[in-house]
Simulated scan of single mutants.
Amino acid sequence: MSQNDATTLTVPVTGGDLPADLHLPPSGQGPGIVLLQEIFGVTEYISGRARDLASQGYVVLVPHIYWRLGDQVVSEAQDGLPEAMGLLQRLDWDAAVGDAAAAVAALREREEVQGPVGVLGFCFGGGLAFAVAAATADEGAQDGARPDALVSYYGSALPDLLGQASRVTLPSLHHFGLADDYIPQAKVREIEDAVTGGGRDTTFLTYAGAGHAFDNPSPLFHHAEASKQAWVATEQWLAEHLPV
């Protein structure tokens, strides 16, 4: 299998089987990353980022979190936003957290994974990744489901998860735009205060002029300079915390 190919597998979870796409690095093995989608589903953009990470040497698993809703993929243009928001409103959040945690555990068990396993999410997925880190913080909460590192791009659920921030003690990297219409700058600073401090290994980066979902290449969201800077920072941070 080439580095640009993915294999679809299933992860047993409560209520059925979670589909997930496995992307292997050129070497066939490496540290693991569970990549969590935006509200639009597992789009070509998300698959492209999975390929980017695989090319850096990571074994990447992309769970289809919308599988309970028909595994839909929605347009990332303006006309797709109402449908995507509708899917999010129908989503069972607790089930989604459990599914994502199960994906972490399943990836850790794969023979291709050599070393730690992190979780990385964009927008909806960034908040979901944070919730997984909080939910699995206790030893033995779920065998193998505790991620070793967290990367969250503008986690949209973080304003509602700050009460759990003290539980997220793993190394983490957060990216936020300072022109985000969904998460105002004052709230971004509140999130920063909650996730940093206390001796935690937290890196919090902000980008002037960048709005929500600035890494997404859709013209509705994309901020080229912020996207570039954040991805370089992500690669460097992963190289330190999930070394290949």
Rank of each mutant, 00 (worst) to 15 (best):
H241L: 04
I191H: 15
E112H: 08
Y207K: 09
T169F: 00
F124V: 06
G198F: 04
G211N: 08
L22R: 09
P147F: 02
F40Y: 14
M85Y: 12
V60K: 00
A149K: 01
E111N: 06
G144V: 09
D193L: 10
V73Y: 01
L173P: 11
P184L: 01
S218Q: 03
V232S: 07
D138F: 06
Y45V: 12
P116E: 09
G80S: 08
A224M: 03
L150E: 08
M85D: 05
L205V: 14
D71H: 11
S27T: 15
L88T: 09
V97K: 04
L107C: 07
V73C: 02
D160L: 10
P19S: 12
S156I: 14
P19T: 13
W93T: 09
E111W: 01
V151F: 00
G70M: 07
D71N: 15
A131W: 06
Y207A: 05
V42S: 05
T234V: 00
G199F: 02
K187T: 15
S227F: 01
D138H: 12
Y153W: 05
A239L: 09
T234G: 00
V232L: 12
V73F: 01
D94F: 00
D143Y: 01
S156V: 15
Q89R: 12
Q142N: 07
L242M: 11
E83F: 00
G70E: 11
N216D: 13
S166E: 15
P63T: 04
G197N: 08
A194C: 03
Y182S: 08
A186N: 12
D193S: 14
A131L: 14
G16F: 02
D92S: 10
A84Q: 02
R200P: 03
A141T: 09
E76P: 08
R189P: 00
P243F: 05
V13F: 09
E240R: 15
L161T: 06
A224N: 03
H23L: 10
E76F: 00
G28N: 06
L170F: 12
L242Q: 13
L22Q: 07
E109Q: 13
L107A: 04
F214V: 13
P26T: 12
A84C: 01
H241Y: 07
L220H: 01
P243N: 07
R68H: 12
S152L: 04
A165E: 06
